[in-house]
Write a protein that binds this DNA or RNA. Structure first.
Length: 208
DNA sequence: ACCCAGGCGCATG
DNA sequence: CATGCGCATGGG
């Protein structure tokens, strides 16, 4: 399985994907980062179209900040994100996530992301509701950390080439080892961002 | 009527 | 360690 060659083919076919999509374009930078985190949580096992509706209703209700989410009554929060499914669990996840970034980092993402990749990844994974894919999406797209996101489509792509592993980390290592060695950090981030987006594009098209 | 979507936590063997 | 199950909406 030639990982680089597959990227080139996908890029030639689909072009740049411009991920992560920001809906609230006029928001402050910290709130755009928060929007990416919220999107990453809401899209767990859920179609993005359903997530977009929830994100837009949060924006419209002025709830796209950790402070506002923390203050909002849970029932009300559930109502706004209902379209994204699992809305009771996800409302709780947003509460916990918001409380964490406020209490520990005063809502300042710079303070969080300036720490090492190992440190920030481990810390996200300790939060209830944040698993490996959600953590890595946040790290890659919100924090610009060089980490490769594995999702159901990525595994499906591997299987098509007869490549199969047991764990998330094994898939991740497989891609990172084949890509990481010859690139600088910033170009690696862009490459990982584009690659994951292209895989999702490929997967979505295939499942229609 | 069914199946799936940009997963995760928790209980069980 | 590895399965299995509940969570929930909306579009095909």
């Amino acid at each position: 399985m030639d990982v680089i060659n597959i990227f080139n083919q996908l890029y030639q076919k689909y072009g740049p994907q411009d991920w992560w999509p920001i809906l609230n374009k006029k928001a402050e930078n910290d709130n755009k980062i928060f929007e990416i985190c919220v999107g990453a949580i809401l899209t767990q096992n859920t179609a993005w179209t359903n997530v977009e509706k929830a994100l837009n209703s949060l924006i419209k209700a002025n709830l796209m900040t950790p402070e506002a989410v923390l203050k909002c009554p849970i029932k009300k929060l559930q109502k706004y994100i209902r379209s994204s499914g699992y809305y009771k669990q996800k409302a709780k996840k947003l509460k916990i996530f918001s409380q964490w970034v406020i209490k520990k980092y005063h809502g300042n993402w710079q303070r969080f992301f300036r720490q090492s990749l190992e440190k920030v990844r481990k810390e996200l994974l300790l939060l209830w509701g944040i698993g490996p894919e959600t953590a890595d999406s946040i790290l890659l797209y919100a924090g610009h950390k060089p980490i490769f996101v594995i999702d159901a489509y990525t595994k499906r792509l591997c299987h098509q080439y007869g490549v199969e592993f047991k764990t998330y980390n094994e898939y991740q290592n497989f891609f990172e080892k084949k890509i990481a060695c010859w690139r600088t950090k910033s170009s690696l981030v862009l490459f990982f961002q584009e690659y994951h987006a292209l895989i999702v594009k490929w997967g979505k098209e295939k499942s229609q």
